[in-house]
Amino acid sequence: MENLTTQMAGVPLNHYIYLSAIIFTIGVIGVLTRRNAIVIFMSVELMLNAVNLLLTAFSVHSNDPSGQVFVFFIMALAAAEVAVGLAIIVMVYRNTKSIDINVLNRLKW
């Protein structure tokens, strides 16, 4: 492990930012193009994870453990969010027999 991380010095911080930006964008595209509520939820998870990775990379970059503590809090928050969100999706499915979000557009009115 020690040997492995000393060799990590070669990866520039830029490439972590690129990776996180690409995965965040994939999550955004998923939210915009899918209609299944659960897949949209998974795209949101993807975005949260991209931010987590970026926070960790910056934490290592600036030698500050606070960033990793934030990631820990984001994970706790994501767990709570998934529990409540999936309960809402189950309730929506029970009422409309579908998890297509276009059925839910009457919430607008």
Binding site: T5, P12, N14, V60, N63, P65, Q68
Partner: peptide
């Protein structure tokens, strides 16, 4: 910003270090 990522403190992400941070200021 394109400086390479260097791990200055190898014990940064270990449980001991993060636990001290988590149960101290946070």
């Amino acid at each position: 910003i394109s400086s390479p990522l260097i791990l200055k403190n190898p014990g940064l992400g270990l449980v001991e270090n993060l636990g001290k941070e988590l149960f101290g200021p946070f």
